[in-house]
Design a protein around this nucleic acid. Structure first.
Lengths: 154, 154
DNA sequence: TGATATTGATCAGTATGCTGACTATCAGTA
DNA sequence: TACTGATAGTCAGCATACTGATCAATATCA
């Protein structure tokens, strides 16, 4: 019988669990209330003004049904705006607000600190290697989840 | 601005997302309906007959409030039994059923196949190195989540 | 012993994430 | 143009995960 510690799936779940806990703790210490998912969405909307929800989902590999709720909460917090697209009446264009921009700027140190903390058991070289291997495994498995990563159409 | 791909937290989430999708697909192909979490709980109950829920949670690093629902569903499926402990009337003892044992035996090839698939982009050596680095990072961050890994009391 | 603290389990509430279904709209084509 | 298929977004339902609270039972110690 294989031990849990020999199962990449188990290790993935555990590392992700710690990563989320660290992120939330750092962000809360900085005085904000934003989840990892909300942060990624907000940063991506800022970098791609006016994008629609499906494009956003593709850029950060979320399921389109998950995005709906995330967007709802970001709008609720006043960090982004959602308005109908003029080109496609099915689509919604997403735009960051001034407050969203402010939040993003002030929260960045906490986010970067969280990334360091979740790798604190590794040397700099090991951290780089872990990220490289994760990127490689993810690239090979990209199409295996319902929410694959997609490039922006531009 | 850091890219998502430079964020270990983002990579962790993405790898876990793929790992779960692969697990569910392989298990469903084998004709079963069991989540990664349910599998880990079932295997751990089999290996530690009569353990209580808190001990189970510690062994696989789940939150104790999450365990309740997982156990409910395993009982519902007839794979385990939950009964009051004789030593401590607050606690419940968990025991695998014959059907649980049968399911575990028949599902194992699918689970092992899933572990291979989620590492398919990596060489054997790289897969080992990824697991080593994950274990190391997890060990250093164990106490940072609400559900740290705990040894069994025995 | 009796007061206090701790522990095992559960619950309510919130936030991902998924499947599958549905509506509205758009795009391509016969 | 009318039909067909695809697409954007939403929703219901289910399963993790977490926070914080509660209840019952156990442990601890003055």
């Amino acid at each position: 019988m294989k031990d849990n510690n020999d199962m990449p799936g188990h290790l993935a779940r555990r590392f992700q669990q710690i990563a989320v806990a660290v992120f939330l703790a750092e962000v809360e210490d900085a005085g904000f209330d934003l989840t990892p998912v909300q942060y990624a969405a907000l940063a991506t909307i800022k970098a791609n003004p006016g994008l629609d929800q499906v494009t956003l989902a593709g850029l950060i590999a979320y399921d389109r049904t998950t995005i709906t709720g995330v967007i709802d909460r970001l709008v609720q917090k006043g960090l982004i705006e959602r308005r109908p697209s003029s080109r496609d009446r099915r689509a919604r264009e997403l735009e960051i607000t001034d407050e969203g921009r402010r939040t993003l700027r002030k929260i960045t140190p906490a986010v970067e600190s969280a990334q360091r903390i979740m790798l604190r058991g590794l040397s700099a070289k090991e951290g780089e290697e872990l990220m490289r291997l994760l990127r490689k495994a993810i690239a090979a498995g990209n199409e295996l989840s319902r929410a694959p990563l997609r490039d922006a159409q531009v």
